[in-house]
Amino acid sequence: MSVLKVSQLVYQGCGPVDLAIEAGECIGLTGESGSGKSLLLRAIADLDEHRGDVLLGDVNCKSVAAPEWRQQVALLPADSQWWFDTVGEHFNATDTELFQRLGFKPQVADWMVSRLSSGEKQRLALIRMLASQPRVLLLDEPTANLDRQNTTGFEQIVADYLATHNACAIWVSHDREQLQRITHKIYTIEKGRLNLC
């Protein structure tokens, strides 16, 4: 059974979209600006109003509380937002071992958010998102502002997570080469409709 199943999803005048993703699978999504890629991810994370069904396993989005849903179906935007001064305040005390596992020193918790580089910020945003152990990762141009080295590091963390947690991902990117490198299938989106490449 697929991890994420989207059927007849209509959102913000786009769609309908049908999509099923298996455990461990990462699908790519590409298309011009304004084609509805980000809006699709927002609808799947239940951040915008939509019609149709989104299922996680056999659980319908409508039947769970929205915050619970978003912990399981997590969206990572291109620009992460931080609201406290230090990195650590955005995490639970138990999350700090994640830092080490993902290549940061434990002291990172005391770092000021304003001093982070864009690469560090995006990797930490990913760790912050993974802390709730989501089953679905919705990645909206996550490496658009990163250099090659940071991009590779980021891709590695995602690939490891998918393999070890039976999770799946939708990766939105303009970079076809990147999608061919890391995803199993690539869809293009045009006027809110998906086409398999």
């Binding site: 994370a45 951040l47 929205a66 915050p67 619970e68 849903w69 978003r70 912990q71 997590a74 969206l75 990572l76 935007p77 620009d79 992460s80 937002q81 931080w82 609201w83 912050r128 998102m129 709730s132």
Partner: peptide, 22 residues
């Protein structure tokens, strides 16, 4: 002014009440 931050907190699975606490 902080609508991006509020949405980010909602994305992380916070309730509307938590996202607006401060």
């Amino acid at each position: 002014q902080q609508r991006m931050i509020i949405e980010q907190r909602l994305m992380l699975g916070q309730t509307s009440s938590q996202a607006l606490a401060e």
